[in-house]
């Protein structure tokens, strides 16, 4: 096996290094990748979408279809881990791996976590809402929100975190976030435009088309954040407890 592996990586390595000779210099401003689409996005995007963060406008608008499926990928992973690992009471009887004894609750850790969690969540909301103007957006904000819950689960235990955010709700919201995204796109379809053409909202909301794009993006980013929050938490609790959702790590 090792010899085959070495052979494969040798062939691939020679191939890739040969090809790298042919690629433009690092940071070459005239490379095709940096000229063709990039210039259009940089020059036109603010006019068309009134969002100064171009990564956001490309992500949630020009390539919004990709991003919707990206959210679906996350959702799919959440359901996959759930269906593979999650054990209901009936099947829980046969636990194989013995768990290490948990040390007692650590008051310093728990107090610090209690102080940190609201800050994290507030910051996460800022990251989601301010994604149009500064680095950030639905994925980043959602991950921070999710990690605030994971911190809770780490410093107390999973039961405590689940007490704050029930598993049923987690699943409900994870599908709800994607559904929000799809619904914003579908509404455009019913307003007579193509799927995800946020401009359709302009007449309805009484704003200009670029502003409608900006609002549409905010809407889908919120949907993304909800799904990412839920799935990050769900992935953690399932993986950390082997699907039993007892105390976890």
């Amino acid at each position: 096996m090792k010899k085959t592996a070495l052979l494969i990586i040798a062939v691939l390595g020679i191939l890739l290094l040969r090809a790298a000779e042919d690629l433009p210099f690092w940071g070459d401003p005239q490379s095709p990748a940096s000229v063709h689409l990039s210039d259009y996005y940089l020059e036109e995007s603010y006019e068309e979408t009134s969002v100064p963060n171009i990564v956001t406008s490309v992500l949630a608008d020009y390539r919004g279809y990709d991003t919707m499926f990206e959210t679906v990928v996350i959702f799919c992973a959440g359901i996959t881990v759930l269906i593979v690992l999650r054990r209901t009471h009936r099947r829980r009887a046969k636990v194989i791996s013995p768990r290490p004894e948990r040390p007692g609750a650590d008051i310093i850790l728990q107090t610090a976590a209690r102080l940190l969690v609201p800050m994290m969540q507030l910051f996460a909301l800022y990251v989601v809402a301010h994604g149009h103007h500064s680095p950030g957006g639905g994925f980043q904000g959602g991950v921070i929100l999710g990690s605030s819950l994971i911190l809770l689960a780490l410093s107390y235990d999973i039961q405590m975190a689940l007490h704050r955010f029930k598993e049923k709700l987690v699943l409900l919201f994870s599908a709800g976030g994607v559904l929000l995204y799809a619904a914003i796109g579908l509404a455009c379809l019913f307003l007579g435009r193509n799927f995800l053409a946020y401009g359709a909202w302009a007449a309805l909301l009484g704003i200009s088309e670029p502003e409608a794009h900006s609002h549409g993006m905010l809407g889908v980013e919120i949907g993304v954040a909800i799904t990412v929050l839920c799935i990050m938490f769900s992935l953690y609790i399932d993986l950390a407890s082997g699907g039993d959702l007892d105390e976890g790590l």
Partner: peptide, 26 residues
Amino acid sequence: YANPLPHVLMLTAIVVGVSTLGVALA
């Protein structure tokens, strides 16, 4: 300004990577 498109594409690829990792670990 830097080219925004690769960043957008890689945000997607990172998400895919995390998802695959989660499933593989499960």
